[in-house]
Design a protein around this nucleic acid. Sequence first.
DNA 1: AAAACATATGAACTATTGTTCATATATTCA
DNA 2: TGAATATATGAACAATAGTTCATATGTTTT
Lengths: 119, 119
Amino acid sequence: MKEYDCACEELHEDSIKKAKETMPEEKLIKNISSFFKIMGDPTRIKIMNALLNNELCVCDISEIMNMTHSAISHQLRLLREADLVKYRKEGKVVYYSLNDEHVEQIYELAKTHILEKRG
Amino acid sequence: MKEYDCACEELHEDSIKKAKETMPEEKLIKNISSFFKIMGDPTRIKIMNALLNNELCVCDISEIMNMTHSAISHQLRLLREADLVKYRKEGKVVYYSLNDEHVEQIYELAKTHILEKRG
DNA sequence: AAAACATATGAACTATTGTTCATATATTCA
DNA sequence: TGAATATATGAACAATAGTTCATATGTTTT
């Protein structure tokens, strides 16, 4: 017998069934949460803000953030792996920018939402 | 003399200036990153998915997630505090749902983005 | 008013995260 | 080729997060 028993199991049977049926597979859930987790850090949000309509190299970002190249590079790796930013190499310089419009939209929507709720 | 010096400071002067000028205040940055941080956990993403067009009580969510009421309640508090979900009380039962369309849109955009990049 | 039920909260314990420091790779220029 | 520049990576350490267990709050029913 389960620990989670309560009347709801029968009362909300349909809603529960629906939720279970539409639940994505574990892998997609993990991908989605990892994506958001990477956006869940002030340093990285600042970097993303700096990259809004603005291509920048690691050195620029270090200067803007007032942080070491190493720290920035570590963060950029995470942002890259999460498909939040893309980059292009030009000689020894690596230029970063936001990955695509999805990323911009997600960022802007969240900002709007927060300003609405806590403005 | 700074550790971060490099040629970029002059070459990319305008981009750096622009990034600095459009940087939101620290408080907003923190609010945005906190918002995403809360979405950055598989348990909470599952809960949010269950709540897509589906109002559910704590007990329902426990059953769907196969987790204790306590664990779910802790997660729902975080989701509430981040303005990701809203709730209404009906007697002793508390019904949760996604806060608004912003939240749905952000979730759906991220899912689309991920399926596009890693599909 | 007491028992039962639904949800919330606090403390504690393990696991994960972000930065620093040292070092490695890659590209250019002399 | 060797020095200089730009970026990336690995290990380690302090800080933070997620679950569990115990307990508290609030609501209904008897």
